[in-house]
Design a protein around this nucleic acid. Structure first.
Length: 771
DNA sequence: CAGTGAGCGAGCTTCCGCTTGACTT
C-alpha cells in the first residue's frame, strides 16, 4: 500500500520532488498529456456540441498502464500538473483515464520546486477547475478545426501534404511579408562626414579626437561643397556636456530569451538550445527550460545575493524580482536558472558548459546593480558653417552587472563606439587632420533568424514555449521557408577626403547584403501564404490568437460556454472553407513573363512537380515546351524575363578532355562539371558556370583526382571492393558502395581484411531514406 | 545526388501543446 501518490508532468521533476517529500510519498510522471484527439480524423462531433473524441495515443499506453497499476495501490492521489490551462487539462484527463475516486483525489499546484512551496501546496489542495479544463478543450478543438479543415483545402488547390494552422501560417506570413519588404526596398544614399582632430595638452603631448558631423548630405555635390568650405575653416570646442547614465541588467531567461541569446552569443539553433537545455535540466543543473516566466524563487534570490556579495561585494548586489510582460504568459514555472547558483560552471560537454554559463551569468547579472556611466558630448564649431561636429565619450563610473554579463542585440552595431576623450577645455582651438565624407546607404529591414522569429511570435502572443522550436522546424519541413546563407554583392560607394587642404575623391567597393542562417520564404510558402491571406484573412490576422485567447480567458473564469464560443467561430469558418473549395481556382503561382525573342513563344513561370519552373511554349499535341528549374534565391514573383531565359543556357558542352565531353550545369548542390559520368563541383565563389573555360575545367578535374588519390588510405589484395578511406570524420571502411564505421578500439592502419569483414557483418542495418 | 515537367486514379497527407526517449549521423 502507498499512502500518497503524486503525479507530475516530467520525470526529472518527479525525482526532485520525491527527495523533498520523503518516504510517505511516491512520485510518478505522466510525461505530458496522456490523451488526445485521434490523429487521422477530425475526431470532434461537430453536431453534438463539438464533443471531442479522445484516445490514449499508442506512445502513451505504457505510461497509462503503469499509472493505473500504482493508482490501485494508493490511498490518496495528488494531481500536481502545472498550474495553467494545459496542466489543468492533464489533471482532468488523468482523473478520467485512471478512473480516480474524487474522495481520494486532490489537485495541487506549485510553481517553484522548493520545500516551502511544496509543503504549502500539500496543505492547500483543491479540486479540478472544470472551467479551466474547458478553456483548454476550446483551445484544442479550435486548433484542430483550423488545421484539419484548412490543410485539405491546400491539398486540393495547391499541392498535397501541405499544412496550415493558427501558429505556423502566421509564422510563414511574417517571413513572406518581410521578404517582400526587402524586395521592394529602395536603398537611398547620403553622405555622412567624419573628422579627425588633434589637440596638444600642456606638456605638448598630442591626442586624437574623432567626431561626426550633425548633418548628412543628400548627394555628392552638397558634400563637396561642405568640404571645400572646411578647407579654410577654423575649428574650436564650443561646448562640453557631461551627463550621468545608467544601464540596467536584463531579467533572467525565459525559453524565448534563452533561444535568442544562445543564437546571438553561441550560434545555437533554436532546436539545439532546447536539446542542450533539456540535458542540463535532466541532470538537475537548471530549472525547467520551457517557461514564459521571469520569476525567481525566494531561495534563488537568497542564493544569488549570497554569491554576488561574496564574489563582488555588497555594492554589486541589487535583489529584485521581475514582472513578465509578454502577452498570454501562463507563469506555471520559474525563470530558467541554475539550480545551484554557487556553481559558476559545470562538468559536461562543451555545448552544455557554454549554455550553463550563459544561464548562470544572466541569472546572477539580473540580481546585480545598475552600471553607472558618464556620457560626454563635445560640440565643435566650424568658423564658416552652421553645422557642428560632435564627439562623444563614455566613461564607466561603476560597472555593476556589466562585470558579469551584457545582452547582445539583433541590430547591427553602430561603428565607432565611443571611448575615452582626450583632455580638452571649452574654447580650445582644434587642428584638423582630415575630414572624410562617405556615401552610406539605407538598410533594408533585416530577415528573420530562427530566434528573432520566436521573439516576434512571442510578442504577438502566438505559440508557447514548448512549441517555438517545433513550429520553426515544421515550416521548414513543409518547404515554406528555408534557413540559408547568401553571399553578399559588391557595391560601389564614393568617398571624399579633405587632407592637407586638398580634396580627393575615391570610388570604393564594399560587400553588402550577405546573410547567415536567415529565414527565406520559398516559392511554395509565398503561394500558400497569399492563398490563405486572400481566403482566410481572419485566421492569418496577427491578432487572431490574441482575440481567441481573450475568449479562452472568459471560458476559464466561467463567463463563457466553450462549445458556444467554438460554434460561433465554426459556422462562418466552415462556410468559407466550402466556398473556397467550390470557387477558388487551382493556384500554381503562374505568371507570364513575355515572349522568347528567339522563337516568339510565350515564357511563363509556375510551380511544377519539382518546384518552381520556367516554361517556353505551350503544351500541345505537336510540341513539348522547354523547361528549366528556377535557382535558389529566385522567386516566381520577382524573376525577370532575362533571368528566366538565362536559365536555358545550361547545360552547355564546353570542350573535350580525354576524348569525352565536358559539360557544365547547375544541380541541387550548385554548379558542376560532368565528365566521363563523374561529377566535379565548381567553386561557387570563383568559377562561373556560364563563362568557365575548358582549360579551367580540366584543372578542376585533375585537382579532384589528386584529392581522391590521397583519400585512399589502404586497399586489400583479397578484395578490390574493400578499402579504407579518409573522410570528414576520419578513417572509415568502404565496401561495395556502402560505408562502415571503424570503432575506436581498432587501429585503421593495422586492421586486417577479416576484421573489416566482421565489422561489416555486424554493422547495424542502414536506415530508410530520410524524407 | 547532378534530372525531372502527360494524364488518370487510389491512397495518403494535416493542427497545437504537454512530455521524453528511440532512433541515426
Amino acid at each position: 500500500m502507498i499512502n500518497n501518490l503524486v503525479i507530475v508532468e516530467s520525470p526529472a521533476k518527479a525525482k526532485t520532488i520525491e527527495k523533498i517529500l520523503g518516504k510517505d510519498f511516491q512520485v510518478r510522471s505522466s510525461m505530458g498529456h496522456i490523451r488526445d484527439l485521434l490523429k487521422n480524423e477530425i475526431s470532434i462531433d461537430i453536431k453534438n456540441r463539438f464533443k471531442p473524441q479522445y484516445i490514449v495515443p499508442p506512445d502513451k499506453k505504457k505510461v497509462v498502464s503503469e499509472l493505473k497499476e500504482v493508482v490501485r495501490k494508493a490511498k490518496t492521489v495528488w494531481l500536481a500538473s502545472d498550474e495553467d490551462r494545459e496542466g489543468e487539462a492533464i489533471a482532468w484527463h488523468l482523473s478520467e483515464v485512471l478512473n480516480l475516486d474524487p474522495e481520494k483525489t486532490k489537485r495541487i499546484v506549485f510553481h517553484e520546486i522548493t520545500k516551502e512551496a511544496i509543503d504549502d501546496a500539500i496543505k492547500n489542495p483543491r479540486s479540478i477547475n472544470q472551467d479551466l479544463v474547458n478553456a483548454q478543450q476550446a483551445r484544442r478543438v479550435l486548433d484542430r478545426i483550423v488545421g484539419y479543415e484548412l490543410s485539405p483545402v491546400l491539398w486540393k488547390k495547391i499541392k498535397p501534404s501541405l499544412s496550415a494552422g493558427r501558429v505556423q501560417s502566421v509564422a510563414v506570413r511574417l517571413i513572406v511579408e518581410r521578404e517582400r519588404e526587402i524586395i521592394n526596398f529602395k536603398s537611398t544614399s547620403s553622405f555622412k562626414v567624419n573628422a579627425l582632430f588633434y589637440v596638444n595638452d600642456k606638456s605638448g603631448k598630442s591626442y586624437q579626437l574623432k567626431a561626426e558631423l550633425n548633418n548628412k548630405f543628400p548627394d555628392r555635390k552638397k558634400a563637396l561643397e561642405f568640404l571645400s568650405h572646411c578647407k579654410t575653416a577654423d575649428f574650436s570646442i564650443e561646448n562640453i556636456l557631461k551627463k550621468p547614465a545608467r544601464k540596467s541588467p536584463s531579467p533572467p531567461f525565459t525559453t524565448s530569451t534563452l533561444q535568442q541569446e544562445a543564437s546571438r552569443k553561441l550560434n545555437f539553433s533554436v532546436a539545439q538550445t532546447m536539446t542542450v537545455a533539456q540535458r542540463l535540466y535532466e541532470a538537475g543543473k537548471i530549472t525547467y527550460m520551457r517557461t514564459d516566466s521571469v520569476n525567481l524563487a525566494t531561495t534563488a534570490l537568497d542564493a544569488a545575493s549570497n554569491v554576488i556579495e561574496k564574489t563582488f561585494g555588497e555594492q554589486y548586489s541589487n535583489r529584485k524580482n521581475y514582472k513578465t510582460k509578454s502577452k498570454g504568459a501562463q507563469e506555471a514555472h520559474e525563470a530558467i536558472r541554475p539550480t545551484h547558483l554557487d556553481k559558476e560552471t559545470i562538468t559536461g560537454n562543451a555545448t552544455e558548459k557554454k549554455l550553463y554559463e550563459l544561464i548562470w551569468k544572466r541569472t546572477i547579472a539580473s540580481q546585480m546593480s545598475d552600471a553607472q556611466l558618464e556620457r560626454t558630448t563635445v560640440t565643435i564649431a566650424i568658423s564658416n558653417a552652421t553645422e557642428k561636429f560632435i564627439a562623444e565619450g563614455e566613461v564607466l563610473k561603476f560597472d555593476g552587472f556589466l562585470k558579469v554579463y551584457f545582452e547582445s542585440s539583433d541590430e547591427e552595431p553602430e561603428e565607432d563606439v565611443s571611448g575615452l576623450l582626450p583632455p580638452i577645455e571649452k574654447g580650445m582651438p582644434l587642428a584638423c587632420l582630415n575630414i572624410v565624407a562617405t556615401e552610406r546607404f539605407t538598410h533594408n529591414p533585416p530577415r528573420y533568424t530562427e530566434a528573432s522569429l520566436v521573439k516576434k511570435l512571442e510578442e504577438l502572443g502566438i505559440g508557447r514555449p514548448s512549441t517555438y522550436a517545433p513550429t520553426i522546424s515544421t515550416i521548414q519541413q513543409r518547404g515554406y521557408v528555408m534557413k540559408e546563407d547568401r553571399p553578399g554583392r559588391e557595391r560601389k560607394y564614393t568617398q571624399i577626403i579633405l587632407e592637407n587642404k586638398t580634396i580627393k575623391e575615391d570610388t570604393k567597393t564594399e560587400i553588402t547584403g550577405a546573410e547567415k542562417s536567415k529565414l527565406f520564404p520559398d516559392n511554395i510558402g509565398m503561394i500558400v501564404n497569399d492563398f490563405l491571406v486572400e481566403y482566410f484573412n481572419n485566421i492569418l490576422d496577427y491578432n487572431f490568437t490574441a482575440s481567441v485567447e481573450k475568449e479562452f480567458d472568459e471560458i476559464a473564469t466561467g463567463n463563457l460556454n466553450w462549445f458556444e464560443m467554438i460554434g460561433k467561430f465554426y459556422k462562418p469558418f466552415h462556410e468559407k472553407v466550402n466556398k473556397t473549395l467550390a470557387k477558388s481556382a487551382v493556384n500554381k503561382g503562374e505568371r507570364k513573363l513575355g515572349t522568347d525573342p528567339e522563337t516568339g513563344k510565350p515564357v511563363l513561370v509556375r510551380m511544377g512537380r519539382f518546384g518552381a519552373v520556367v516554361q517556353i511554349g505551350e503544351l500541345s499535341d505537336s510540341e513539348k515546351p522547354r523547361y528549366a528549374s528556377l535557382r535558389k534565391g529566385q522567386n516566381l514573383e520577382s524573376i525577370t524575363l532575362e533571368e528566366a531565359l538565362e536559365l536555358f543556357r545550361l547545360p552547355r558542352t564546353i570542350g573535350k578532355f580525354e576524348d569525352k565531353d565536358i559539360i557544365v550545369s547547375i544541380g541541387r548542390f550548385g554548379p558542376y562539371i560532368l565528365h566521363n559520368s563523374t561529377f566535379y563541383s565548381l567553386n561557387k565563389n570563383t568559377d562561373d558556370p556560364y563563362s568557365v573555360t575548358a582549360g579551367r575545367a580540366i584543372e578542376i578535374i585533375q585537382e579532384k583526382r589528386l584529392r581522391d588519390e590521397k583519400k585512399v588510405l589502404r586497399t586489400f589484395q583479397e578484395d578490390a571492393e574493400l578499402s579504407i578511406l579518409n573522410g570528414r570524420w576520419g578513417p572509415y571502411i568502404k565496401y561495395k558502395k556502402e560505408n562502415y564505421k571503424i570503432p575506436k578500439t581498432s587501429d585503421p592502419s593495422t586492421i586486417t581484411y577479416e576484421e573489416c569483414l566482421a565489422l561489416i557483418k555486424d554493422a547495424p542495418s542502414r536506415k530508410k531514406k530520410k524524407k
